[in-house]
């Protein structure tokens, strides 16, 4: 489709790849240098998978992905803030919040219908022979 519209699919895909690498690098730099001030193997603690899930939930729409990231991050932060403030809730219940949220989002995106994955995701296209 992009090809028919006059774009060069391979170039677009490489641009997206480079941008993804750059954003991932910035995120990693923030995690180790700004937030935790330390580095350790596996320190992302599975957050990359949450990012993939977010992209799917957001239906490959960047704006929804940003909103989703804020909601997930907020839930994680709330769980810690509530405890520090001494809110009278069980820490085990608080730890459930991000997972409950995942279920909720899954339910709603399920209601919305089929997944909106780009048709050419993961496929190479080098023009029409």
């Amino acid at each position: 489709m992009a090809y028919a519209a006059g774009y060069r699919p391979a170039l677009l895909q490489y641009q997206a790849l480079a941008l993804a690498g750059m954003l991932g690098g910035i995120a990693g730099a923030h995690l180790s240098i700004a937030l935790t001030l330390t580095w350790a193997e596996g320190m992302t603690a599975g957050r990359g998978f949450i990012a993939i899930a977010l992209v799917i939930f957001a239906g490959w729409n960047p704006l929804w992905a940003v909103i989703g990231a804020l909601v997930f991050g907020g839930a994680e932060s709330l769980q810690l803030q509530f405890q520090a403030r001494g809110v009278d809730v069980s820490p085990f219940l608080m730890n459930m919040v991000p997972y409950l949220l995942t279920l909720l989002v899954l339910t709603f995106s399920g209601l919305r219908g089929r997944s909106a994955a780009p048709a050419a995701l993961g496929r190479s296209f080098f023009g029409v022979e």
Binding site: L31, L35, T36, G42, A45, E76, L80, Q83, A84, N95
Partner: peptide
Amino acid sequence: VATGSWSDKAKEAAATGA
């Protein structure tokens, strides 16, 4: 503040800050 994990540096940093 319990992070719920033995090794989750992002949460440990946020918990310390909180």
